[in-house]
Structures are given as structure tokens and as C-alpha cells.
Simulated scan of single mutants.
Amino acid sequence: MRELFELRGADPELLFSPYCWRVRLALLHKGLEFHSRPLCFTDKAPLACSGQQLVPVLRDGDCVVHDSVAIFQYLDRAYPERPLLGTGEAQSRARLLERVIFQALRMPLLKILVPRVHALIAPADQAYFRSTREKALGMSLEAFADPQAGTAQLRQALAPLEAWLADQPYLDGDSAGGSDYLVGGLFFWAWCLGTQPWATESNVGAWFQRLLNHYQTSCGPVKRAEPDGQALAVPTA
């Protein structure tokens, strides 16, 4: 049985990593069953099989792959039916879309979600999360976190997606594909942490709901933290 090593909160059923959600959606797309191995931030020993210390890690028989994009590429090679990224120019375009959109959305969401992550992980993980993130950010979590500014920045960053999804139900067209999962992982990240800083009644909101409904119909309810009440107002212009 395939194993997916992924990140959990203090509640072992709360799985919130955007990168791990990418892989969950990709495995569903391929119709591949797997066994979840949820890990805390500081639970590094099980990842030794991958030669590094970050999730997601997929172990498929004797093959061990880490990094979400590398896992997508592996799945397309090993299970070519229903491609995720395709090959050649198609794969390059998917990677470009992922890089541009992901980078535009990640920082605004991080400003919103940092306090939520810190509050919802195991106490033993909080010191690790604080030290590693503060080193990367160059400031304290409290100085970096700014949900109000993050929400305003996210509103602007979502505009291209909102326009794109006005003409088609998914980023990849009439049905969901690799681009939807690469970007959608960010939305599962926020939603699982109990936050929805985008408008429900919007093209982006409808797109995410389609992804969520498809996943829950196939795999059962997704564990979500208690909602924090944040929601983006529907843009009026």
C-alpha cells in the first residue's frame, strides 16, 4: 500500500499542509489508494527513508519521492492514465502557472494563517515552528502576522484567478487537473485551518467548493478547525 507522510496539527485528523493537500488531490485524480502517515512538525525520524526532513513524502513500494511537484511528475510516469501535468510544453505551462499564482497567493495567506498554525499545532511543535519561521521571515511571528493586510493583498492577488474562472469551471478547463491541485492546495490550507479569506459567492469560491465537494464525495469529510469567522466580501468592482 502506498504511504503518504503528511503534516498534522495537535489533532491528528487536522491535515493542513498546502503541499500535502496537493498530493492528496493528485492521488484522488489518479484513482490511487494510500495510507496516511500524519506527522507533527518535529516528528522527523519517519522521513529518513526520503533522505530529507520535509513533507510530503510518498512511498510507493520501493520508490520514495519527496516534494509535491516531484511527486506529481512521478505519478505521471508511473501511472500515465489521467495525466496531472502532461509532458513537454504542457508541463512547462502548468509549472509556470503554479509558480506565478502560488507565489502571489502564498505570502498574503501566510500573513493570515501564521497565528492559526501556531495555535493549532501540538505544544511540542510550537517552539520549532516559531524558531524556523522567524529565521526564514527575519522577524517574530507577531511582527509578521497581519490578517487585515494579508486579506487586502489576497483580494488583489485573486483577481487574475477570478477572471480566469469566469470562463471555465477549473484552471485546467472543463475538468480539474494538475494546475487546479497545485494552486488548490493553498485553499485547502486556509480552509482546514478554519479560515476562508475569499468570497464564497465568487468564481474562486465556487471553484474551491467544487474541488472540496469532489474530494469529500470520494474520500469523506475533511477535518476542519473551528472557523475564525473571516470571510472576504464579494468584490463590488
Rank of each mutant, 00 (worst) to 15 (best):
P108D: 03
F188M: 08
L15W: 04
L15I: 07
L182H: 00
P123E: 03
R130Y: 13
E89T: 07
G220T: 04
Y170P: 06
L7E: 02
D146K: 07
A124P: 03
H35Y: 12
L141S: 02
D146I: 05
A166S: 11
L186D: 00
P197E: 14
E134N: 13
A48K: 14
I71D: 00
R8C: 07
S36P: 03
M107L: 15
Y79Q: 00
A159V: 11
A157T: 05
D228H: 09
V117R: 03
G51C: 03
D125C: 07
A231W: 10
I101R: 10
V65D: 09
P221N: 15
L165Q: 03
L4R: 01
V234S: 11
R93H: 13
R2Q: 04
A104G: 09
A152G: 08
L105E: 03
W21C: 00
T200R: 08
E33Q: 07
R130C: 10
A127L: 14
A159H: 14
T200Q: 15
R93C: 15
H29M: 01
L109I: 09
R99M: 09
Q52W: 06
F208A: 13
L182C: 09
A70T: 14
Q91S: 14
G229H: 06
Y170Q: 05
F129E: 05
G61P: 03
P147W: 02
W207V: 02
A157N: 08
R93N: 12
A233H: 10
G184R: 04
P12W: 14
F129Q: 08
D11N: 13
R2T: 08
K30T: 00
R77D: 12
H35W: 05
S131N: 12
E3I: 00
A26W: 00
A45I: 06
G194M: 07
V23K: 01
D76C: 00
Q91K: 04
P169W: 01
A94V: 11
P46H: 02
V222T: 05
T87V: 13
F208Y: 10
D180H: 01
H214L: 13
L97K: 07
A124L: 09
A166K: 06
L32G: 00
L4M: 05
D43P: 03
A122G: 05
L39C: 13
A70S: 10
P227H: 00
F34I: 04
C63S: 10
K30A: 00
L28Q: 02
E3C: 02
E162T: 07
K44I: 09
A149P: 13
F72I: 01
K135F: 07
G229Y: 04
L161F: 05
I101M: 11
R155Q: 12
R224A: 11
A157V: 05
P197N: 05
R2W: 03
S218P: 02
